[in-house]
Computed example of a mutant assay.
Amino acid sequence: MAIKSFQGARKQQFVNETITLKVRDYMSTNLITFKPNQSVQEVVEALIRNKISGGPVVNDRQELIGIISEGDCLKQLSESRYYNMPLKHDTVDKRMATDVETIDGNMDVFDAANKFLQSKRRRFPIVENGKLVGQISQKDILIAALNLKGENWNSTTKKSS
């Protein structure tokens, strides 16, 4: 014999639930990367073709060894004109920045936003077990914030149970 419940409808209860938006959920993983032995001319062509402002430099084991940016390429262009050296003769390893600050993929996106503000950087690579696995940009952080729809900026929303 089945027992039926004759309880009435329950009122919706609101429970504070902390939603943690992680960097890894918003990072780009399909990255355009560069090799240290590539010519700066190839980098410039790739930056223009892909409408990006820079990218990570990795070795053959996909380990992050630097970042090359439009600014690095512009500096090389300026110097190449002065010294009359074409772009194709200079390589990424001579122009890339090697002091690369990374960010943890498990970091909360709001903490990452603060890190962006403090560092004045436009993007951070994400490295796991020594390998480049992604990159987070300021735009990615804005997308994460929009996903909350501005309801509550401390990552806590009211959700019915």
Rank of each mutant, 00 (worst) to 15 (best):
W153L: 15
Q135G: 06
L74G: 01
T18Y: 02
I103C: 06
N59V: 00
K115Q: 13
D93K: 06
L87F: 09
S80D: 11
I126R: 03
E79F: 05
L77F: 14
R49H: 07
K159G: 00
R122A: 08
D25S: 07
A145F: 12
M96Q: 00
S119Y: 03
Q138K: 13
L87P: 07
E151T: 14
V40N: 03
V40R: 05
D90R: 14
W153T: 15
V44D: 03
N50Q: 12
T33N: 13
V43P: 05
A113S: 08
P86D: 07
S78N: 01
E128I: 10
N147K: 14
L47T: 04
K159I: 04
F116G: 01
V109Q: 07
D104H: 15
D99W: 00
M85R: 15
A46I: 10
N129T: 10
E63I: 10
D93R: 10
V44M: 09
I141Q: 05
D90F: 11
Q76H: 05
F116R: 06
F116I: 08
D108C: 04
S119D: 00
N154L: 10
E45W: 09
P56L: 06
V127I: 09
H89Y: 11
T98V: 00
E63R: 12
S155C: 10
R10P: 08
G134N: 01
K51C: 07
Q135Y: 08
K120R: 10
I67R: 01
L117H: 11
Q76N: 12
M107S: 05
I3D: 14
L117W: 05
R95G: 02
S137A: 12
K139S: 15
E42T: 12
G105Y: 02
K94S: 12
I126Q: 01
K158M: 08
I136H: 09
K88H: 15
L142V: 04
V109Y: 01
A145L: 11
K11G: 07
K4F: 08
E63D: 06
V127K: 03
R121S: 03
R24S: 01
E101I: 13
L146A: 03
K139V: 13
L142G: 00
I136F: 12
N147C: 10
K88N: 14
P56K: 08
